[in-house]
Amino acid sequence: MNARHSARIGRYLLTFALVVVAVAAVYPLLFTVVSSLKTQSGFANDPLGLPAGITLDNYLEAFRRMDMPRLLLNSLITTLGGLVLSVLAALLVAYAVTKLRFRGGKVVFLLIIVTLTIPSQAIIYPLYQTVLDLGMSGEYQGLILAYAAFGLPLGTYQLAGYFQQVPDELIEAARVDGAGHLTILFRLLAPIATPALAALAIFNFVWMWNDLLLPLVIMGGSDSKTLMVGVSLLSGQYDVSVPLVSAGLIVALLPVLVIYLVFQRQLVAGALAGSGK
C-alpha cells in the first residue's frame, strides 16, 4: 500500500517536473508570438499580457521589408546543398576508413575529426579571405562548401562509428555476390545507417539554416543572402519596434519548426535508433 502510494506521489512529482520544463521550453516562443501580434503602443502599454486586439500588421510589414520568397529560396539551396554534400562526403570517408584496406585512412580520419576543434570565430577572417581568393564570395557554392566543411567532422565520426559495427563478413558476402564498392556503400550500408543519417540530417539542417556568421561573411549583403541574415538586417535597422522584430523572428524560425513538427516522428525514431548499438 504504502509503496504504491509513494509511487503515485512520485509519478505526480515526475509529471510536475516535466511540465515545468516544458513550460520553460515553449514560453519564450509563445511570448514572441504574442508580442508579434501586438501593436507598437499595445506592447508599450502592456509588454507581458495578452494583446487587447490581434494585429497582423507586423507580419505584413516584415514581409514588405524582406524579399521573403528569395530569402527562403537562398536558405533552402544553401542548407540543402551543405547538408547533402557534407553527409555524402562523410559517407565516403567513413566507408574508406572503416571498410577498405586503405593505408593512411586513420590519418585522414584523425585530420578530419580534429578540425572539429577549430572554432569558426577564431578563423572567420582568414576563412573569408580564402573564400574571396577562390572567387566564391557572394556565391551559393562558397557557402555550401563552407557548410559542408563545418558539418564534416561530426558526420564522419558518427557514420564511421556506425559502419564500424557492421560485420566485415556481411561486406565480404556482398563482394562475393559481385557487388561493387559503391553498391555496397549506397545499397547496403547506407540503408542500415538510415537512422544515423536521419539524425545527422536534422542536426545539420538546423544549424545550417540557423547559422549567421558564415552566411554573413560569405554572402555579404548580396541577393543570395539567407533568411537569417535578412532577419538580422531587419532587427539591425534603427526604427524597428519589438513587435515587428518578433514577427520577423517568427517568420525566420517557422520553417525549421514546421519541418521538425512534420517529421517529428521519423526524426525521433531516427535519432533513437541512430545512436547505434
Binding site: 555524402l88 565516403l92 577498405l100 585530420l111 578530419i112 578540425t115 577549430i118 562548401l145 566543411a149 564534416l152
Partner: peptide, 18 residues
C-alpha cells in the same frame, strides 16, 4: 579507391579549415 573516396572530404577540410 580509398584515396578517391576521402578526397572530397579532405579538400573541404583543408580549404575551409586548415
Amino acid at each position: 579507391l580509398g584515396a578517391a573516396l576521402v578526397l572530397p572530404a579532405l579538400v573541404l577540410a583543408l580549404l575551409f579549415k586548415v
